[in-house]
Amino acid sequence: MLISLFVACYNDTLFPDTGKAVVTVLERLGHTVEFREAQTCCGQMHYNTGYRPEAIAVMKHFVETFRDAQIICVPSSSCVSMMREHYPKMAKDAGLETEIEELLPRVYEFSELLVDKFGITDVGASYPHTVTMHTSCHSIRSLHIGDKPERLLKAVQGLNLVKLPAADQCCGFGGTFAIKNAEVSSAMLDEKIKAITSTGASICTAGDNSCLMHIGGGLSRQDTGVTCIHLAEILAAREVSVQ
């Protein structure tokens, strides 16, 4: 199948490895990946901060870029949530109702694409580490992704998945919230970090690099030795355990 990757602006700039990993996994499964270079951003930051007209401009650009794409894969649950929750409303202002209505069913968050669309949980990865997973707010409460990422992880060879206490509690990122209310955000992050370190995992994963950038920033500042890595990168891995 031809899959069009919407990598998300922040992944493009800050976490290119995630995009590469998505390409690796999809190609390993026999699909063809395209990357439309005109793509930029979903408009989430603008929208959530109250800049609706600006967000609409970005949405328009997204629609133009992906109008004829058959399957759009997005390795960022918050971007997919932005599109599903808010594009329909914004579309009214932009006169793009039909376009959005037709486009949205073709947008898949990465784990949705694998589990729902392809019906696959074992993608042939091997990753001999103890891993814990933060269920990002958007993935559980907006996308209702449920245990899909968990099922994918459980099928990874050598991976020891440990449960994160209060996994569904927000890490405190919330886009500009982390800056506008930095202290409260940090207090929330502290709780998340305590929970992560209590698991004994060496790796913390999620389906969204925005949470992971936040959590990772705290883990590194507190010198915990725990690393954050996107779900796609684990699924792309073929590490052999050194014994």
Partner: peptide
């Protein structure tokens, strides 16, 4: 505010689109 409690990721040499 961010930097008081959180490190920022290093900027990768190459963006995804360049790769």
């Amino acid at each position: 505010g961010w930097s008081a409690s959180r490190d920022l990721p290093a900027i990768p040499k190459e963006s995804f689109r360049d790769w």
